[in-house]
């Protein structure tokens, strides 16, 4: 009896959590008439991919995806490299001021981005990279959370392994990327997931840097434009199709990498 009650709670919770995304998928398959109907039509009578075709053209989906992939991909790669190197130093080297420097790095993790947005906008203009993807990418190539995560995991790598590599004549650079990195693959997978999804989804900074240069817009900004484009036309099915397209890549990455994230979150030590 108790089991039935708990199972009911579980099903209700799953339905409630999934509902907005299911509504999005259903909405993207409706005809314009169905999406404007009052009371709302829940199930599209004649599911149609027409909205996807239209919206792919309106938001230049290929170009937007390419821009998103460049922003998220290059930023993630940069974060992985800089975090591995700094995490290795903070975990395995001893030097004066190490703890103070590490504390300062971690502190930047908690800073709301709006606090530095105005001077950063000007600095990007001064560097001559405003309106370009490189301007979006450049300030995000190092990340405090990434450094923190790598340090936590690299601390657990045995010193003997590193010393043995040194005796074999391996350079420190080789040790970081060929000896240490393979032993912290779960952390690398989790950081890849977090960084890629975060920068795929990021909105405020690209909007500020790109300033209306729509050729360089990632999919999230194109989607934001779509809303104003369709506001008068009320093409809800197109808006839903656009949202579904933007949601897909981070969700797929999440499904592929999700088994790493819980273990990793537990290991960061931030959680008790």
């Amino acid at each position: 009896m108790q089991r039935v009650g708990l199972a009911t709670v579980l099903v209700v919770a799953c339905v409630a959590v999934a509902f907005p995304l299911v509504w999005m998928m259903l909405g993207s398959l409706k005809t314009p008439a169905e999406s404007l109907h009052t009371p709302p039509v829940w199930w599209p009578a004649h599911p149609s991919a027409e909205a996807y075709r239209t919206v792919a053209r309106v938001v230049s989906v290929g170009r937007s995806f390419r821009n998103s992939a460049i922003i998220a991909g290059v930023t993630t790669l940069g974060i992985l490299v800089t975090s591995l190197m700094a995490g290795y130093v903070f975990a395995k080297y001893r030097f004066r001021g190490r703890n103070a420097l590490f504390a300062a790095v971690v502190a930047t993790m908690f800073l709301p981005p709006i606090v530095t947005l105005i001077p950063l906008y000007r600095m990007i203009g001064w560097l001559g990279v405003d309106g370009r993807l490189i301007g979006v990418i450049l300030p995000n190539l190092a990340n405090a959370f990434g450094i923190f995560l790598m340090r936590q995991f690299i601390k657990g790598v045995p010193d003997e392994l590193i010393d043995a590599a040194r005796l074999d004549g391996a350079s420190e650079l080789r040790i970081v990327f060929r000896v240490v990195a393979p032993t912290v693959m779960p952390a690398i997978a989790a950081l890849t997931l977090f960084a890629f999804v975060y920068h795929w989804n990021s909105y405020l900074w690209p909007l500020t840097v790109l300033q209306g240069n729509t050729d360089q817009y990632p999919i999230v900004l194109s989607l934001g434009r779509l809303l104003s484009y369709t506001r008068s036309a009320q093409n809800t099915n197109q808006v839903m199709a656009g949202a579904a397209l933007a949601v897909l890549p981070p969700l797929v990455l999440f499904v592929v990498l999700q088994r790493f994230f819980v273990r990793t979150l537990a290991r960061t030590g931030l959680t008790g």
């Binding site: 199972a7 579980l10 989607l223 934001g224 949601v247 999440f254």
Partner: peptide, 27 residues
């Protein structure tokens, strides 16, 4: 099935906020 709930719950965090905003404006 609790694993399904956990995955569903976390997946919402992976969705771009602009898409969430758009979908909820229609809800």
């Amino acid at each position: 099935g609790t694993g399904v709930l956990r995955a569903l719950l976390f997946s919402t965090y992976m969705v771009p906020t602009i898409a969430v905003a758009i979908v909820w404006s229609k809800l």
